[in-house]
Design a protein around this nucleic acid. Structure first.
Lengths: 243, 243
DNA sequence: ATCTGAAATTGACCATCAGTCAAAAATGGA
DNA sequence: TCCATTTTTGACTGATGGTCAATTTCAGAT
């Protein structure tokens, strides 16, 4: 088998893997993990079940592969956000707020899967390789935010005697993911009277940043104006970002 | 069958249900949902599988029942916290921070299950009855916190032009649960350098409350002293609360 | 065009396990 | 002691994740 043939094969294999993942993701979003049936998936992608197992070592590995792709999409958005040149570190961190909201708006299916694999029993059942890949994506997101936090500390926009930078990143991530997860519980949505989840999540993030003492505080600059710049310069696809 | 016999039967039935739930919870914590085997559970509790189904309509219903008990324990702690007479609303809200930390410290297994049932596919598979029971527990927790938020607004400890009270409860819940969930991911724990999760969670909650403008701000009162009072008056069992 | 060995694909098959139900056992009042 | 009722049992079933020997496809050689 010559080299060009090899690359064509690899390309076809990658295309098939993507086909499988796309169908699996849709089925997962529609029916949930417990009702995701591999026989039906094989039927839909028009390959045999045996071929599925050429790509994934188990059902959990398949789901983990979807989570990895989602995390890579998220990391891509975060790295675009990192390139935003706001006029203060507080404006730059706002870019991640939009990036996170954009992720859960554009890829709700991926978000669900991301939540799913956080369950303990998933970690041990997926292949080592994909677990590492997920960790890599998490690391990319972490570093993107971490860089801005460090810049803020260096610039004196954050109090020097506050939380250490890594804990600040952790706090921001926690309030974001926590708000998204809680906001997906119908009971709580009703109790809290939430209609537009994206804006509720962003409000919580904003409160946290103020609590960290991240200057300028939200009342001291025009967040809507920054949103407009972000829409124009970084996330033109974020149509939900009505400003 | 006379009335006393009936009550004895009901008592025995309740005791057996508790036995099943206790074993199931331990197995769930040790092996995860996917490896929770009902044949093995039946063997451990020394009843047949058929008898398990006298108590629960499905495996998901069983897990939901555990979640309900966990939520009731949590609600119990929250209602004890609500009885704390702090010298300000900010001190009173701190009681919930300790209650939440105490819950995940004393009942880590219940916490895991609580997280598990947040997955969409669980909701539809458990019995209506238990889903309602869970909603009831969530409501108890919500109302306990909500009362203090309203008191704070009435007292002017929270800015009148800030988030509406229900959204404040939502924000507090989000940062708490979000921190706990993220803090259980080994990769992120490493990146953020977290060793004592309980204190990291409480730090995040504290930052959020400051961000909400909940007076007195954390720098303006002695949180450690309030912790000492809470330990002495409300949560004597909270040995982790070294103050 | 045809052959051939390697690689890829298949789907019948297997093991596991949630859930069922007819038969057996236990119960409690007469 | 007996009998009707309730409770318990565990063998059985169907569904499904995962395997692998048999088949098909493929690329290069003749």
């Amino acid at each position: 088998m010559t080299a060009p043939t090899q690359t064509r094969k690899a390309r076809e294999r990658a295309a098939r893997e993507q086909l499988i993942l796309d169908h699996a993701r849709h089925m997962l979003a529609a029916q949930g993990y417990l009702d995701l049936n591999l026989d039906e998936l094989a039927r839909r992608v028009e390959y045999s079940k045996g071929t599925l197992y050429q790509h994934f070592s188990s059902k959990e590995d398949l789901v983990m592969a979807i989570a990895v792709q989602g995390m890579e999409l998220r990391a891509g958005l975060f790295e675009r956000a990192a390139a935003f040149r706001g006029s203060s570190s507080r404006e730059r961190i706002q870019a991640f707020s939009v990036a996170a909201a954009q992720f859960s708006h554009e890829y709700p299916d991926y978000f669900e899967v991301e939540t799913l694999v956080k369950i303990a029993s998933f970690a041990g059942r997926a292949s080592e390789e994909r677990q590492n890949a997920l960790g890599l994506g998490v690391g990319r997101c972490f570093r993107a935010v971490n860089a801005v936090v460090h810049a803020a500390l260096a610039a004196g926009d954050l109090p020097a005697d506050g939380l250490p930078p890594e804990r600040i990143v952790f706090a921001i991530a926690s309030v974001s993911i926590g708000s998204e997860i809680m906001g997906r519980l119908p009971a709580l949505r009703l109790l809290a009277g939430i209609d537009e989840l994206a804006w509720t999540v962003r409000a919580n993030q904003c409160v946290l940043l103020d609590g960290l003492g991240w200057r300028p505080l939200s009342r001291d600059f025009d967040m809507a104006a920054v949103d407009r710049r972000l829409r124009a310069e970084v996330f033109p696809e974020a149509t939900w970002l009505q400003v």
